[in-house]
Design a protein around this nucleic acid. Sequence first.
DNA 1: GAGGTTTGTAAACGATGTTTGAAAAGTAAA
DNA 2: TTTACTTTTCAAACATCGTTTACAAACCTC
Lengths: 187, 187
Amino acid sequence: MAVVRAKHDRSEPVREAIRLSATKLFEENGFEATGIRDIAREAAVNPAIVLRHFGSKENLFLETMDSSSAMRSIIEGPLEGLGARVVGLIVPGRQKGLEILGATVRASSKPDIRRRLHESIAASLIEPLIDRIDAPDGELRAHLFAAQLLGLMTAFAVYDDEYLLEAPLDGIIALYGDSLQALVTGN
Amino acid sequence: MAVVRAKHDRSEPVREAIRLSATKLFEENGFEATGIRDIAREAAVNPAIVLRHFGSKENLFLETMDSSSAMRSIIEGPLEGLGARVVGLIVPGRQKGLEILGATVRASSKPDIRRRLHESIAASLIEPLIDRIDAPDGELRAHLFAAQLLGLMTAFAVYDDEYLLEAPLDGIIALYGDSLQALVTGN
DNA sequence: GAGGTTTGTAAACGATGTTTGAAAAGTAAA
DNA sequence: TTTACTTTTCAAACATCGTTTACAAACCTC
């Protein structure tokens, strides 16, 4: 009785298995250290069909490693207390978005990946803030907020500042979250 | 007339030519997009002798792309006005150190390069600050100062925030330099 | 000038992302 | 069911990369 739209989705399970393996391996080992043949083996599939379905390794990375939703969710909620809240979201568990961000930054030699990184930050972090900041220089403030936030993310995800990783959260909030907050609501 | 120490420096001119070409190409195109054969061609030299003299492409990168001296010089001078000063040094000309930092960040898939990045930040940025900050939580403040500073650097060197690039310097100093300053001298 | 070390070269090696042709499996119409 | 056509799979080959190797040339030392 009417299989729902089996139009040309015959390969969808394979594609999904590949996406799953790619996500796992890219997150664990990054773009460069993850080979097409590794992904194929993990998905129990022939290396060539990874490329038949996704075109290129770079494109597969773009389809699986997307940090924009994580970024957007980070700045959700009221502007009051945003500084402390984002710091709290970033610091403790090294949430998933951080791994993706780190992998994306390290893969940004590839122009398309660099473009994606730029777009994610602009569309999911900066632009949503611009509309909400009610202060002179709102646009500048949004850009600087993003820069400062990414500074902390970078400390965790690209050079690993183990001191910051083990530092008490309230200290970081008091010193870093407050100046983030000052950017977003006037001084 | 005593040639000075021609001990085993017969190959030094070649090594220097290779270093020069490597520096230029790594800075322009990054680690991954620069091939051993490109460097060799630019230096008018056989590809194999690049590796004979430097061991590996990664090692050549480490010998030529070092951002620690640029970092150390950035935080020189009195603590008063440091926040505004570092922002002024970073923003305008996209000084050379920024290109090197960007290339290093993007090459940090390689464990040795990631380690170098970490060491440069720790030894040339954080540690010199710790000794000079005269406030409670001095160590935490130094680490957060580095994180925030690298946030701005990242905005210029890894995702290219063209808005910040063209923003007036005094606006950035007022909003970003001041909170950097607050980290380094109490609130 | 002979012996030994350093420096240069061409060719090959192994691994990578990717392409290619043909076989296999599926789909649809007769 | 048979036929024709499309989609999916696979093994093999390809181009490029960093690197190694084996050998020749240049140099230094005695």
